[in-house]
Amino acid sequence: MLPLRDFQAEMTAYLLSPPGPSVPDSLLALLPSDGPHNPKRFAVYKNNVYARLVDALRDTFPAVERLVGEEFFRYAAVQYVAQTPPRIGTLLAYGGSFPQFLSTFPPAGTVPYLSDVARLEYLYLESYHAPDAAPIVSLPSDREQLRPMLHPSARLMTSPFQVSRIWELNRSEATFDNVTLPQQREYLLIVRPEREVEVRRLSLGAYAAVLAFADGGSLAAAYEEATWANPSFDFAAHVETLAKAGTFVAFTEHDVQQ
């Protein structure tokens, strides 16, 4: 009699092996009779596991799927699932390394922006599920040394491609005429001040400032960073705009970053 542990070890190895018809004899031997269709019974479980995990990736990366098509996406997702099965019992955060996987997945090499679109979609997901917090929309006065604390849903990314435009065009089923987007670097802030996640395109100066805030920098420190990146940057106006848009949840006097 096979102890429960050994059965579950063998079944797990089978379920995670690449999709295919073969079922190990050790598992088939557990069934009461030698039916010719026994492998198909085990295959139902394997199909379920792969289908559920591939669907989870489809839910998180709809624009990636649309860019490469259903069939290609499935092909890539199945390989990813086999290499990187989930570790936790909720799928809400599954696929964190899928963008990285795509960047080194040779068949995706012809779509150079694909992994950046995936990165944006995953940051969107993180922002969606991040802790709630009430934004503070007006800046305190006399504030140079204050450190604005970003909303816990804030995520930053930059890409050499117009990744947010590509994402916007491909995240829904809506059709659009072919567009040509010149290659142009984007600086993005993904944040959910209220219920909706917003993907905001920032200027280089604003991005440098928000990056400084993310590192726990004060307004004075962020001013240095932003005007170094862009000497003509209107720091005060931009910080005001960021605050009004619900980017900050606190202004602290001390370094609150660990």
Binding site: Q8, T12, L15, L16, Y45, R52, A56, P85, R87
Partner: peptide
């Protein structure tokens, strides 16, 4: 099983 969550009812 092990470090893996299979997300199916086995």
């Amino acid at each position: 099983f092990g470090e893996v969550a299979l997300h199916d009812l086995l």
